[in-house]
Nucleic acid binder design. Structure first.
Lengths: 227, 227
DNA sequence: ATATAAGATTAGGCAGGGCTAAACTCAATA
DNA sequence: TATTGAGTTTAGCCCTGCCTAATCTTATAT
């Protein structure tokens, strides 16, 4: 039990950086760039360089000047703890407090820095220990393990496949809204009728034979599995 | 609609000071001393002087060197907003998350700085718009009005009176626990049998003729009304 | 009327985080 | 190989809050 996992996050800023590194590192071979993190957190690259150095001090990342940062084991644990909090809080806001998809992200972002581990676990209890949030993202366990994600973007699926929506990107509120309106939410089955190389439009059909043509950004925001 | 009431508190520290001033000013003719606030927030008197000056800048208090600070109307609104949040959050933690009296205060203290007005009002909705928290303290309305408090400390009551517990001080967790165990909670009726000038002990009897001798600190932590 | 102590204020610092502007790396292209 | 520009880092500054030490004020007691 290291000093970080006592009860709360380190300074809220630190947590934001760790989460950003974690999220960006997923699709960049484990390393996050200064620029990427800066963009994600809306701070200047200079601030990120600065913080990377401090995170290394704290033993949360491995950092090499000019070549980005990688989470250490402790850093990863910290990040996952934050992610767990975030997703449980989102679930609570959506299911118990009547938030809609638009509003959830920001509120959760702020709350996740204020709640204790005790709060988090009681919330999990209240929610019935869900393992996915309403966007379809897996919720890391209290011990820090996370399901491997074998889903792929809808834009990558080949025509003809029958797939199930596993999650939707939760960054763009307007998009979430659009998808929510059409009930394109996790759990929904779709058949992929056509994938147009030209413009990236994916044409899908739902169980009621309703057809949707989804443009490039949308098709990259919806993730599916074929189980 | 001034800039403070947008969605969240000003910097969390500012809110703490406003609340402290508000709480201390109640029983000090509207004015809070540097020392008092310092003690309440566990910071040095110097920090308080400093902050008083800044709060005045911001138009939240009226401050005169060497003679303390008084809330302005805006300051009072801010403070009450925080108090409302705090009490609603406490209520939620106790009623929905299974916290016990001990743990509630700190968690609420941190959360109240992170939640938005929107969250607060949805929480109020979820809780059924309570007007008192479980300690018996009145919850300010969303518009900032607060019930006048005509209760008095148990230590002030004259012998023979039949009174009802209206609230218990929520600062000392051990005390709350003690009271909770004996079910000395808001709503409970008591008859005051004796008030010993000497040591401040108050002897009361509950509805089942159970008798309790309450020492000075306890008698000053329990507030009652005679309605 | 004055001395004194309690309480309050100023001065001078420190750490966390953020920013801009200027300087540096390094990889890609001419 | 030499140049160049995107991406990074450094330098220097700002602001919020907190702290200690030193210096006032003020009220109270003689």
């Amino acid at each position: 039990m290291n000093d970080l996992s006592e009860t709360r996050s380190p300074s809220s800023s630190v947590g934001d950086y760790l989460k950003a590194v974690w999220e960006l590192a997923v699709d960049s071979g484990g390393t996050a760039s200064t620029k990427g993190v800066a963009a994600r957190l809306s701070v200047s690259p200079a601030s990120v360089s600065n913080m990377f150095a401090r995170l290394q001090e704290m033993g949360l990342v491995r950092y090499e000047r000019y070549r980005g940062a990688t989470l250490t084991e402790r850093g990863r644990e910290e990040a996952l703890r934050l992610v767990r909090r975030h997703r449980l809080i989102e679930t609570f806001l959506l299911e118990h407090l009547g938030y809609d998809w638009q509003e959830v992200h920001d509120e959760a972002e702020r709350l996740e820095h204020a709640v204790s581990d005790g709060f988090t676990e009681r919330l999990a209890e209240l929610l019935g220990h869900p393992d996915h949030d309403p966007h379809g993202d897996p919720i890391p366990s209290a011990e820090g393990s996370l399901e491997v994600d074998d889903s792929m973007a809808l834009s990558q699926v080949v025509a003809g496949r029958r797939v199930r929506i596993s999650k939707v990107r939760d960054e763009d509120a307007a998009m979430l809204d659009y998808l929510g309106d059409r009930n394109l939410v996790p759990g929904r089955w779709l058949r992929v009728r056509e994938v147009r190389e030209l413009d990236g439009v994916v044409v899908v059909e739902d169980e009621e034979a309703e057809v949707y043509a989804l443009g490039d950004p949308l098709a990259r925001s919806i993730f599916v599995r074929n189980d």
